[in-house]
């Protein structure tokens, strides 16, 4: 899942280790999330959102390729 983690981290001049310490996870986890190799669980996503003082939707950008729930406006 695309995310703005690297951009938000760079704006605060935090290293991955700094962000990992604030989120109580390993640096490998932060690296995996930033490189889109791993999607965080809901509790971790909320923790990251709290750390950056933003909502989850402002940080994580889902790939909206699934159109099964789209309703026909007509």
């Amino acid at each position: 899942m695309r995310n703005r983690l690297r951009e938000l981290r760079a704006a605060r001049r935090w290293s991955q280790a700094d962000l990992a310490a604030r989120c109580q996870v390993s640096r490998q986890a932060i690296n995996a999330i930033e490189t889109e190799r791993y999607d965080p669980s809901l509790p971790l996503a909320f923790t990251i959102a709290d750390v950056f003082d933003q909502t989850i939707e402002e940080i994580f950008l889902p790939d909206r390729t699934d159109t099964t729930n789209e309703q026909d406006p007509a």
């Binding site: 290293s15 991955q16 990992a20 109580q24 390993s26 640096r27 690296n31």
Partner: peptide, 15 residues
Amino acid sequence: MTNQAQPDQVTRAAR
């Protein structure tokens, strides 16, 4: 910029 390859606090504590 801190060296990204150095173990972070959580990893060091785990080890």
